[in-house]
Amino acid sequence: MAKVVGEVVIDIERCKACELCVQACPEQTLALGKQLNHKGYQYVVKINDNCTGCANCAIICPDAVITVYRKVYKTKQQVPA
């Protein structure tokens, strides 16, 4: 069974806390954070590690603040212990 691991990098200063990514994420990985960026927006943060790198968040994000990475681990052994 292949295991997919995704990662998102959020440009927190550019995030406008519009929440579109929060809704678009199938794994509920994203949520508005408690901290404010310099413009006063509660920028989005990751709240779990279920990200599969599907990039839905980045596609819907109006301001292209999310960069997405994904790696597919072919078999279980490859998942480092």
């Binding site: 990662e7 990039a55 980045a58 999310i66 960069t67 990475y69």
Partner: peptide, 15 residues
Amino acid sequence: VLVENIVTPENLVYR
């Protein structure tokens, strides 16, 4: 799972 740092160019999906 010891999460390997996958934030590397070859794993880039969207920018």
